[in-house]
């Protein structure tokens, strides 16, 4: 979670999950496999291991490190099956309760709360994804129509910039922007001076606005950044298509909707699929920073629930169960999304 930027980058740029690229990976793999069978260079023997001892010394300690920090923590999942009380001592001195915590989280009063938490996670992510994708496509199409290269570059640099600001700063800016005019809330101020509203709107205390605020803030932060891959896809479109369309008398709009948009459609679909795999993992900071007690019914997401209810209040057992739920569902989603993207990739792009 600490390098959220990296994970969004992974989600956004959508590189292949496994070490094999989608294209040509089959032949590559096949070659490697036959090599392994035939080529004595790839056979694992003690001689080869000894000969590669320096490479092994470079890789193996870091491998053990990675296993310790990324895989070993799974032992903490045991808490999900325990009645965890920090006072009892270590994790192996706890009382085992079987699936009691799972029943507790998914039924009764906690069940209702958790269902709302899951709904908020899905709602905020879906809205963010749809608004973000749509906005990025529109901006990419419009930027592509700018013929003045310096102007285009300046626009790109300005719109990319918020991506690099931290979520704390962005949430802070959003909370000021959405507050009362007396606290510097320039959105209310603008609405009032345009006579759209008579009284300032209390954006951050109204539960119905919260999903929209999350999606809007995400849009502000990531809009420009998300256009990068679409702009790259646009430059990959065969220029002769535009020439042919011009000869046939197509105007600017015609070319935009009949050539550019269909041309980046495969990218749009692949990115949408890959990003939808991250739907449980994406929004954490904003609902945590901006969600106060008055809006928690629409603000609380799974990660916020884990941090607030689990870490801050010390209810480790239920929070770990919620975490297990999230991790398992996320792996299924990300896995199937990547599989779908890969399959689609091969059909539409190769």
């Amino acid at each position: 979670m600490t390098d959220a930027t990296v994970s969004t980058l992974v989600a956004g740029s959508g590189p292949e999950p496994d070490p094999e690229p989608a294209n040509g990976s089959r032949s590559g793999k096949r070659k490697a496999r036959t090599n392994a069978a035939k080529d004595p260079r790839r056979e694992i023997t003690w001689d080869r291991i000894w000969a590669q001892r320096v490479l092994l010394a470079m890789a193996v300690p870091l491998l053990l490190y990675q296993i310790l920090f990324k895989y070993v923590p799974v032992y903490g999942w045991a808490i999900g099956f325990q009645d965890y009380k920090p006072g009892r001592g270590g994790i192996w001195e706890q009382e085992w309760v079987g699936l009691e915590n799972f029943v507790d989280l998914f039924t009764g009063v906690n069940g209702e709360r958790f269902a709302r938490v899951v709904a908020n996670t899905l709602g905020q992510s879906t809205l963010t994804l749809i608004v973000g994708t749509f906005g990025a496509i529109v901006l990419a199409l419009l930027l592509n129509e700018v013929k003045n290269q310096p102007f285009k570059r300046v626009m790109q640099n300005i719109t990319y910039m918020p991506h690099f600001l931290s979520w704390v700063i962005v949430a802070s800016l959003a909370s000021v922007a959405l507050s009362l005019p007396s606290s510097g809330g320039f959105i209310n101020q603008a609405l009032m001076s345009l006579n759209l509203v008579d009284e300032p709107i209390l954006f951050l205390t109204e539960p119905n606005y919260f999903w929209g605020i999350v999606a809007g803030t995400n849009l502000w932060k990531e809009l420009g950044w998300n256009t990068i891959l679409y702009l790259a896809a646009i430059t990959a479109i065969d220029p002769t298509l535009y020439e042919a369309a011009e000869v046939d008398g197509a105007g600017r709009y015609r070319k935009m909707f009949s050539i550019t948009l269909p041309g980046i459609m495969p990218t749009i679909v692949v990115l949408l699929i890959i990003n939808s795999g991250w739907i449980l993992s994406t929004n954490f900071e904003l609902p945590y920073f901006l969600g106060n007690g008055l809006v928690s019914e629409t603000a609380e997401t799974i990660d916020v629930f884990v941090l607030r209810y689990g870490y801050e209040l010390g209810n480790y057992s239920l929070a770990v169960v919620a975490g297990i739920f999230k991790t398992v569902v996320a792996i299924i989603l990300v896995g199937s999304a990547n599989l779908a993207a890969k399959r689609l990739n091969q059909e539409t792009l190769v």
């Binding site: 979670m1 990324k70 923590p73 799974v74 999942w77 808490i79 884990v306 870490y311 975490g323 991790t327």
Partner: peptide, 15 residues
């Protein structure tokens, strides 16, 4: 695989 798998906030904290 670690790009796609995370044990979770509390297990990481416990480690």
């Amino acid at each position: 695989l670690t790009m796609y798998f995370d044990a979770g906030l509390i297990p990481n904290y416990l480690l």
